[in-house]
């Protein structure tokens, strides 16, 4: 079964309903999906429950997979949407405005600033973002999902994705710099008290 592509496995599973085809897909992606859930929940038991629900959801939706995107992109979209829905706080359920707001320029595809961030501090800064913002940034920078595919997954326009990404990046940058300045101040204080 190793020689079959993901899309071929999906077609075979949908037409025959035989478990081995699904199990092959599961084997290929279970760790990846579990890790994404773990990134969101930071709790192994909850990540396990999320992974279980996501694969059940995937099986029930497989016949609707139209192969407009790669299977992996589709699966990650289902995963992100599920995690974001589950972890969205009631306060966050307000309607998003995708209008540009003052203080933020146009969407910039130059990600040099993101690339220069230090991993552990980035992880901490991400904790201060909402699940939607975190999900969007992870789709773009961790899984390299295109703006168009993110827009399809979220059922919003490409310009709305760009606007939300820009806002999330801006918030991440602020949180990251705040943490950086805090640790610099702690370092300076420690040095001066040592003298």
């Amino acid at each position: 079964m190793k020689h079959l592509s993901d899309e071929e496995l999906v077609r075979l599973y949908v037409s025959t309903q035989r478990n081995p085809y699904f199990e092959a897909l599961y084997t290929r992606y279970c760790d990846k999906v579990y890790r994404k859930c773990l990134s969101f929940t930071k709790n192994s038991e909850r990540a396990e429950d999320f992974t279980h629900d996501i694969f059940i959801r995937v099986v029930t939706k497989l016949s609707g997979f139209r192969e407009q995107a790669k299977f992996s992109t589709w699966l990650y979209s289902v995963t992100y949407n599920y995690c974001m829905d589950q972890l969205r706080s009631p306060r966050q359920k307000e309607v998003y405005s995708d209008e540009p707001y003052e203080g933020v320029g146009m969407y910039d595809d130059d990600d040099a600033e993101v690339a220069e961030m230090e991993a552990q501090r980035l992880n901490k800064a991400l904790d201060h973002l909402t699940s939607d913002e975190r999900g969007l940034l992870m789709m773009k920078y961790q899984d390299d999902i295109s703006i168009r595919d993110i827009a399809d997954a979220q059922q919003i326009t490409e310009s709305a994705v760009k606007m939300r990404l820009m806002r999330a990046k801006e918030k991440l940058r602020k949180r990251y710099l705040e943490a950086l300045i805090f640790w610099i101040l702690v370092g300076i204080k420690a040095l001066t008290s040592f003298k």
Partner: peptide, 21 residues
């Protein structure tokens, strides 16, 4: 890319497969 570095490296629990199937 630091986003790739922060991805957890834990593996999915093996008993989950049986439950799902």
């Amino acid at each position: 890319n630091p986003f790739k570095l922060i991805e957890p490296d834990a593996d999915c629990p093996p008993h989950l497969r049986e439950q799902i199937v």
